[in-house]
Design a protein around this nucleic acid. Structure first.
Length: 818
RNA sequence: GCCCGGGUGGUGGAACGGUAGACACGGGGGCCUCAAAAGCCCCUGCUCCUCGCGAGCGUGCGGGUUCGAGUCCCGCCCCGGGUACCA
């Protein structure tokens, strides 16, 4: 007999070769009828080599893709690279190596490893976002958004990272620090490019209802958009004849306002005190507040500081004069940069009032008498027509009254800001705009796209894009008037590149257009999107915005890019995030080298539910490897004696004893794995079921029927294929002479799923006292009789009165006794 | 503070309101072998005893609903993540 040693180094390259030679995973855009499925994992940023997180996300995605294919769908499962970005550029600054070269080298690493992992990718659709044939269309989309007024330039207070020497979008500032490098960000007043994502705030919010995403991701997006309903109320400063609107969610508390506060950045603060004796003090305060870091200023528990402006505004509901303050707890970015302060019913206003000896007034009854009171209740001490009215009802009534007087109106405010997309860096997609002194901002004509990123020698950022130094490139004739003009030298945020790549995959080789809308209609939306929860706000919000905007412009027909989202948990080592500095990095390449790709993939899916974080265990890998080796060896040995007959994979007939039990186990495994893969991604229990089946086969005695052994092993291999494709393909091929990926998903024979004898649990007062065998179709009375006859049940019923009997057919009998 | 997750053996984890701990790791014992590796077999939640087809306890804590609760409800504690002066 041949030497049957499981050797992934032999098996894996052989099948990879077949898949590459035959372009097995390619799917055309041909108008073939039948169900389609678009399975997509978030595209990788190619830096160095793939890490363990990549192994996980593509193992999960590949399992889904294979399952969809085997259950009769045409599956689009492409791959690409998010290839622009700062790490490559910073590397270039240190070494002088062109970012394109280091990026392409990384991409080759990724390609090689994806092939070695056996991921079923349609390589014919591959691209990197840094390739002109791709970013040509990124620029085209930018122009379409520009034409529609959705991309615009404005001067604003923006977040600046002094380390990366570029501006950042709000989403890229985490705890006052740069999301990428961790450096504390500053605020600068600069003119920048923005996308008008705030126009879509309501739709981005409302359409969350229509997509099947994890609740926590939806919640994070809702919070980020931060819609609040309330009213805009106008407070007039009579001294200077200026109206100051404020946004409030609590117009019901208007009668409790006792002072008025402006943000230090508010443009009118200095004007209000000009030439007064308060000017010096206010100047000092504002300067101090502006120089304070975001971190310090952002702390909610910080004492409430502020300065009186020496001016007053009039409360529109009762004509009271309220003192005006400047205080850093009011933010310029939100609302109008000014607030009415109601210390009786707001924590922060209360804290400020305490610190500055301002009156606190109760206008809503309730609570235990303590102020501030944040709950609901009837109005008091407000106005005769509102007193006694529930505050929720009063809220509307007061807004109506204000609207009638022209002093306010219902209003909605969002936390979401427009997306700042320009970056003062080199390695990104050039913004296709020419700045002409005469014509202003002129779009580059579509026929001239792409605006190709020029090669430069000095990548160092100096507060402006390194592109600004490429004089030959910058100097250009204005497309509109022909006079000398200059190119926009900022590049786009790399999140722009990844906001539409899933559209390009559908029609990746189209040189005439970004895509053919008819082709897009065949594939979009993505049926199953898979990635890390760290993109819950950034990428996933931006991509949704792009799809909605492009739909409005008539280029596609869907409202949402990703119908179903799955977020996988992190892989840790020794309970901690893997990092070079901790020295706890597990390299996928080392694992694949040692155990093979199948072991690495199957282990990462077996370790636990894929949505949970999981800790890597070297011993656990060994266990999965042993399992694959055992399955393969059993299959190879069983195939020595012959193959299964051609045709459908069905159990031999006329089985009995252990042979029948194995056939039943196979049917059970088919059913179990199918269920685990259908509704949820319970890969861990699916693999456990195949393990159980394999264990049962390995316990068969030598005189077992060879066909049932082959059948059960072929079922095991077939079910395992989505998780460990090479070893499964190899085992299946030996057992059947056929290619498992061309086989339909196995069907469980219903007659084998049924049992004629079942085990019945006998309980007395809810405690298990005995287990008995009973015919599966036994009646309740029969089951009851069987259980009451059981010795241990009788022992526990001895001398007691039976008060109730519960029978769950096929399962259990519970006798309740006193 | 608020919003999500999550607390089950030595470990990762299983369990439509119905046998808690599938599967795997680790551990113990055995077979094979000159020996080892590999492989195979058995045992493995805790406690007690009369050692059995035994009894009791056991899913973070305290209550509740139910014939029956890891699972549902109420009140807490702890851990992880997100978010935070957003008016």
């Amino acid at each position: 007999m041949a030497d049957h040693r499981y050797d992934p180094k032999q098996i894996e390259p052989r099948w990879q070769q077949v898949w590459a030679d035959e372009r097995t995973w390619h799917v055309g855009n041909d108008d073939v009828p039948g169900e389609r499925s678009y399975v997509l994992e978030m595209l990788p940023y190619p830096s160095g080599e793939p890490h363990i997180g990549h192994l996980k996300v593509y193992s999960v995605g590949d399992a889904v893709a294979h399952f969809h294919r085997r259950t009769g769908r045409r599956v689009l499962h492409p791959m690409g690279y998010d290839a622009f970005g700062l790490p490559a550029e910073n590397h270039a600054i240190r070494t002088g190596q062109h970012p394109r070269d280091s990026t392409n080298a990384s991409i080759e690493q990724f390609q090689r490893q994806f092939r070695e992992w056996g991921i079923s990718i349609d390589w014919d659709r591959e691209f990197g976002t840094h390739e002109p044939r791709y970013y040509r269309w990124t620029q085209w989309i930018f122009l379409k958004l520009f034409e529609a007024g959705l991309a615009y330039r404005k001067e604003a207070a923006v977040k600046w990272c002094p380390n990366d020497q570029t501006v950042l979008a709000n989403e890229q500032v985490v705890d006052g620090r740069c999301e990428r490098c961790g450096h504390e960000v500053e605020v600068r007043q600069l003119e920048q490019w923005f996308f008008r994502i705030t126009d879509y705030a309501d739709r981005l919010l409302d359409d969350l209802e229509t997509i099947d995403w994890p609740a926590n991701v939806k919640t994070m997006q809702r919070n980020w958009i931060g819609r609040s309903e309330g009213a805009e109320v106008v407070f007039r400063c009579e001294d200077l004849q200026i109206d100051y609107p404020v946004f409030t969610t609590r117009p019901d508390t208007l009668f409790g306002a006792t002072f008025f506060v402006m943000a230090p950045e508010h443009p009118d603060v200095l004007r209000l005190v000009e030439g007064t004796d308060r000017a010096d003090e206010v100047h000092r305060y504002v300067n101090h507040a502006l120089n304070e870091s975001n971190q310090e200023r952002g702390a909610a528990d910080k004492p409430k500081t502020g300065v009186f402006l020496g001016r007053h505004v009039t409360n529109p509901v009762n004509g009271e004069r309220l003192p005006m303050y400047v205080a850093d707890y009011v933010l310029m970015e939100y609302g109008t940069g000014a607030i009415m302060a109601v210390p009786g019913h707001d924590d922060r206003d209360f804290a400020f009032a305490q610190a500055h000896d301002l009156p606190v007034r109760r206008v809503i009854e309730g609570g235990d008498g303590e102020l501030p009171y944040l709950g609901d209740g009837p109005l008091t001490d407000s106005a005769p027509e509102f007193d006694g009215m529930g505050n929720r009802e009063a809220l509307g009534a007061i807004v109506d009254w204000l609207a009638g007087e022209g002093k306010g109106r219902p209003s909605v405010n969002y936390r979401l800001r427009d997306w700042l997309l320009s970056r003062q860096r080199y390695w990104g997609c050039p913004i296709p705009i020419v700045k002409c002194e005469r014509c202003g901002l002129v779009p580059v004509p579509e026929a001239d796209l792409p605006v190709v990123l020029p090669d430069i020698s000095d990548y160092a950022p100096r507060g402006r894009s390194p592109l600004a130094a490429a004089e030959d490139w910058v100097a250009v004739a204005c497309p509109s008037c022909g006079e000398p003009a200059r190119r926009e030298t900022d590049t786009m945020d790399t999140f722009v590149d990844s906001s539409w790549y899933f559209l390009r995959y559908c029609d990746a080789r189209n040189d005439e257009a970004a895509w053919d809308p008819a082709v897009l209609a065949e594939w979009m939306p993505v049926d199953q999107y898979i990635g890390g929860v760290e993109h819950a706000i950034l990428h996933l919000l931006y991509a949704r915005f792009f799809v909605k905007a492009l739909k409005d412009l008539g280029y596609l027909g869907v409202d949402e890019p990703f119908a179903r989202l799955f977020t996988q948990g992190m892989i840790t080592k020794d309970g901690a995030k893997m990092s070079k500095s901790k020295g706890n990095v597990v390299s996928p390449q080392a694992i694949v080298e040692r155990y093979g790709a199948d072991t690495a993939r199957a282990y990462i899916l077996f370790i636990g539910p894929p949505e949970h974080a999981a800790d890597w265990s070297d011993e656990g890998v060994e266990g999965v490897h042993r399992f694959l080796a055992r399955l393969w060896r059993l299959a190879a040995e069983a195939a020595d004696g012959g193959q299964l007959p051609a045709g459908e994979l069905t159990a031999p007939s006329g089985l009995e004893g252990a042979d029948l039990a194995v056939a039943r186990k196979a049917a059970w495994a088919i059913d179990k794995v199918t269920r685990d893969m259908s509704g949820r991604f319970a890969f861990n229990t699916a693999i456990a079921a195949v393990m159980e089946l394999t264990n049962e086969v390995s316990r068969l005695r030598d005189d077992a029927a060879p066909e049932v052994r082959r059948f059960a092993l072929a079922v095991a291999a077939s079910l395992l294929f989505p998780f460990a494709p090479h070893v499964s393909a190899d085992a299946y091929s030996r057992l059947t002479g056929r290619r498992v990926w061309e086989e339909p998903w196995p069907q469980a024979d219903p007659t084998l799923l049924e049992r004629d004898v079942v085990q019945i649990v006998c309980q007395v007062n809810g405690k298990v006292r005995e287990r008995v065998e009973a015919p599966a179709d036994a009646s309740s009375d029969e089951l009851l009789a069987l259980c009451r006859a059981a010795p241990n049940v009788q022992a526990h019923l001895d001398g007691r009165e039976v008060v109730k009997e519960v029978v769950v057919p096929g399962k259990l009998v519970n006798v309740v006794a006193r």
